Deep mutational scan, measured.
Amino acid sequence: GHYRIRINGREFEIRGISEEEIRHLEEALRNGADEKILKEIVDRLRG
């Protein structure tokens, strides 16, 4: 998958993330885990 997200007015492209991972992120966001989720995304993109 290849997705664009906007955070604090800046747009980011996220590549190589699966539909299942996105559902997991959405679930966590609904549970209020904003900073933790951003850290997970950044860590994943770093490799």
Rank of each mutant, 00 (worst) to 15 (best):
27 E>N: 09
7 I>A: 00
22 I>Q: 04
21 E>H: 05
27 E>G: 06
40 E>C: 06
20 E>L: 08
19 E>T: 11
34 D>H: 14
36 K>Q: 10
46 R>H: 14
4 R>I: 15
33 A>P: 06
1 G>M: 04
7 I>L: 04
19 E>D: 13
35 E>N: 06
31 N>M: 12
41 I>V: 06
11 E>Q: 03
23 R>G: 10
34 D>R: 05
36 K>S: 11
41 I>W: 15
46 R>S: 14
46 R>E: 10
19 E>R: 08
29 L>I: 14
28 A>N: 05
23 R>I: 09
6 R>N: 12
20 E>R: 06
12 F>H: 03
2 H>N: 14
39 K>Q: 15
37 I>C: 06
33 A>K: 07
22 I>D: 00
47 G>T: 11
22 I>S: 02
41 I>Q: 02
4 R>L: 15
41 I>S: 02
47 G>K: 11
11 E>N: 03
36 K>R: 14
32 G>S: 05
3 Y>P: 12
46 R>V: 15
38 L>F: 08
28 A>Y: 09
22 I>T: 03
23 R>S: 11
40 E>S: 11
35 E>Q: 06
35 E>P: 11
18 S>Q: 04
6 R>Q: 13
47 G>L: 13
39 K>L: 15
24 H>P: 03
23 R>C: 06
7 I>D: 00
34 D>V: 15
26 E>A: 05
34 D>W: 15
7 I>H: 01
1 G>L: 07
30 R>T: 09
18 S>W: 02
2 H>P: 04
43 D>A: 06
6 R>W: 08
41 I>T: 04
33 A>F: 10
37 I>A: 10
40 E>L: 12
38 L>V: 09
29 L>F: 07
42 V>R: 03
12 F>I: 14
8 N>R: 03
11 E>R: 01
27 E>Y: 05
26 E>D: 06
6 R>T: 15
26 E>P: 00
29 L>Q: 06
4 R>F: 11
16 G>S: 05
44 R>W: 12
15 R>L: 07
42 V>S: 03
45 L>H: 07
27 E>L: 10
27 E>V: 07
17 I>F: 03
21 E>N: 07
17 I>G: 04
22 I>R: 04
2 H>Q: 04
15 R>M: 09
34 D>Y: 14
5 I>D: 01
15 R>E: 07
8 N>L: 03
21 E>V: 06
22 I>W: 12
40 E>W: 13
29 L>K: 03
12 F>C: 10
